[in-house]
Amino acid sequence: MTLAAERPNGGVQSVDRAITILEILARLGEAGVTEVAGELGVHKSTAFRLIGTMEARGLVEQADDRGKYRIGLGLVKMAGASAARTDLVQVARPSCKALAAETHETVNLAVLADGTALYLDQIAGAAALQPHNWIGQRIPLHATSNGKVLIADLEPDLVDELVPRLTRHAEATITDRASLHRELARVREQGYAVAVDELEEGLTALAAAIRDAHGDVVASLSVSGTTFRLDEATRTELVPPLLRAAEEVSLALGWVPPREPAATDG
């Protein structure tokens, strides 16, 4: 009996067949079109078209033995990215919980993804009554503290490429490109970003960078709450614990802080 015969009729047939091809290659390591067609119970030309589409997307690739195929690097990279994000959430979770408990505000973890800030995790503090669930949502880079942190270290040309349009989301949203670059310079200088009423009226957030062993910014950690509650004095109080939590996660990822220059006698 073929694998295809064992599967239910529900679902999109081509998608089911593509998944079956991946399962075949995972089991056998390598397989030719004829072998795949036999396993699927379809004509060789159908298997060839499916494999060709999957090859174009990097899901499968030709093995050294031409005519045979194996799982492609595209799929491996996707799986690796997913695993890396899962590991990041697990590593950051204790520090996020501690920060939420200390500040009583909502703590979010975000990464750069397709020109947006993608929220991976959220911990609600005691002061956050029915907080909005940001997990899985993508937010604009120029209008949020997390977004500013994620692009602050990038070259200006790359920033402009990632943020081609400075869409206005609220009255305070940065919509001028020169202003955005000045704001990113400020983020680099002070080590954290602030967004007051920039994504939506009444929402304020502060964010700091999480770095990996290479010193690259791989995520951002933020504290957010109502603008009424997070006034200027409160924001100043939140900076030290925010920076400390971001540093804890960075250290756990292998980041080594730069050494202070040694003092010399004048």
Rank of each mutant, 00 (worst) to 15 (best):
G191A: 06
P241S: 03
I135D: 01
A193M: 08
P257S: 10
Q62M: 13
L243M: 14
A110P: 08
A100F: 05
I210H: 12
R168W: 00
V89Q: 11
A110D: 07
A219D: 06
E198L: 07
A100V: 09
T34M: 07
T46A: 15
V12P: 02
L203T: 13
A26H: 12
A110I: 03
Q13I: 12
A124G: 15
A124K: 14
A127E: 09
R168E: 12
V15A: 06
L118F: 04
L22T: 12
T204G: 03
A110Y: 06
L230Q: 12
V223T: 05
G38F: 10
A63M: 06
A262S: 11
L59M: 14
P156L: 01
E105I: 06
R229C: 00
H132V: 14
T144P: 03
A101L: 11
A26I: 10
L59N: 10
P140S: 05
N146R: 00
T53V: 03
D153C: 01
G147L: 00
L99T: 13
S220Q: 09
S82Y: 08
T103N: 05
A63S: 15
K97G: 04
D65C: 05
H214N: 15
A262W: 03
G254E: 05
L129H: 10
L203V: 15
Q130N: 08
L22D: 05
A262P: 05
E183F: 02
T226K: 12
A4G: 15
A117S: 15
P94D: 01
V249W: 00
G11K: 11
R188C: 10
V249R: 03
S222Y: 01
G115L: 04
A128W: 10
A63Q: 07
G80D: 11
L50A: 02
L251R: 13
I19N: 07
A113D: 15
A193D: 10
S82F: 07
I71Q: 07
V15M: 08
M1I: 01
I139W: 09
I174W: 01
A92M: 06
L154C: 00
V15D: 09
P156Y: 02
S95Q: 10
G10L: 12
A207R: 01
I210A: 11
G80T: 09
A100H: 06
R49K: 13
G10K: 14
D160V: 15
A18D: 03
L112Q: 03
A101T: 13
V187W: 01
T2G: 04
F48L: 13
T227N: 11
R85Q: 12
M54T: 06
E23V: 14
L112Y: 04
V217C: 14
A195M: 10
V239A: 01
A152E: 00
A5F: 13
G80S: 14
L88C: 14
H181E: 04
T264F: 05
Q190I: 02
E155I: 05
Q190F: 00
S250T: 07
A31L: 06
V33W: 09
W134Q: 12
L118S: 02
K44A: 01
R177S: 02
